[in-house]
C-alpha cells in the first residue's frame, strides 16, 4: 500500500494505526484534520474536496519520503478524503512511528504542513447562508476581477475611442 492515499469513504483510524505498529518503535503520533463548522466568520455546513489525483499522490509520496528520511521514521502514512464531507468527519489523517516521540510528533507536523501547501487538492466550503466558495481561491478571483476592472476603466476609455470611433478614419 502506498504511503499517501485518497479515500472517498470515512477513515478507519484503528486500521490505519495498525499499519504502523512496529516493535522497533517507541513512539507513534497521529494527526487528524476535522471538518469544522465555521471559517472566517461564516457558518460552514459541509465540504467538498477535489484533487488532481495522479500528481497529488506522487507529491504526497514525496512528502512522506522526505519525512521518513528527515526524522528517521520507521513508518509514516497519510490519507486524504475526497468528495463530499459532513461536519466532524476526518478530512485528513497523518500517522508516524519512530523509535522516539520527538521525531514522531515533528514528522506529523511536517507532513500535514507540506500536504496543505504542496498537493493539488482543493476545498469547497458550503455555508449556512447558501453561498459556497473555494478556499484560498475566492480572494484571488476577487483580486483578478479588481485588476480587470482597473484595466477595464482605462480600456473603456480606449474602447470608446477605437481609433476610428470618433475621429474621421478616412
Amino acid at each position: 500500500m502506498s504511503a499517501f492515499r485518497f479515500s472517498s469513504a470515512a477513515l478507519d483510524t484503528a486500521a490505519l494505526r495498525a499499519e504502523l505498529t512496529d516493535p522497533g518503535c517507541g513512539a507513534y503520533a497521529a494527526f487528524e484534520g476535522w471538518v469544522r463548522d465555521h471559517n472566517e466568520g461564516q457558518r460552514v455546513t459541509r465540504l467538498e474536496y477535489e484533487a488532481y489525483a495522479p500528481l497529488a499522490a506522487r507529491e504526497g509520496e514525496q512528502v512522506i519520503a522526505e519525512a521518513i528520511s528527515r526524522f528517521k521514521l520507521r513508518g509514516a502514512l497519510c490519507v486524504h478524503r475526497i468528495g463530499a464531507l459532513a461536519l466532524g468527519e476526518i478530512a485528513v489523517w497523518v500517522g508516524a512511528s519512530a523509535p522516539h516521540r520527538d521525531e514522531a510528533f515533528r514528522a506529523c507536523r511536517y507532513i500535514i504542513d507540506e500536504v496543505k501547501h504542496r498537493l493539488p487538492i482543493w476545498k469547497k466550503e458550503h455555508y449556512a447562508s447558501g453561498d459556497s466558495g473555494w478556499v484560498n481561491c475566492e480572494r484571488c478571483a476577487a483580486a483578478a476581477a479588481d485588476a480587470g476592472a482597473d484595466a477595464a476603466s482605462s480600456a473603456a476609455h480606449e474602447t470608446h475611442g477605437h481609433d476610428h470611433a470618433h475621429g474621421p478614419r478616412r
Binding site: G33, Y49, A51, Y52, P54, L55, A56, R58, E59, H80, A91, V92, I112, V115, K116, H117, R118, L119, P120, I121, W122, K123, W134, V135, N136, C137, C140
Partner: peptide, 28 residues
C-alpha cells in the same frame, strides 16, 4: 502541471501533452 508533473510556465509544449492549471490549493 504538464504530464502529471509540476512544470515551469515557459516549458515548451509538445504534441499530446496534458496540461493542468492549478488554482491555489487548500488540502487538509
Amino acid at each position: 502541471a504538464i504530464n502529471e508533473a509540476f512544470a515551469d510556465w515557459s516549458q515548451p509544449l509538445s504534441e499530446g501533452d496534458t496540461v493542468v492549471f492549478l488554482p491555489p490549493v487548500a488540502g487538509g
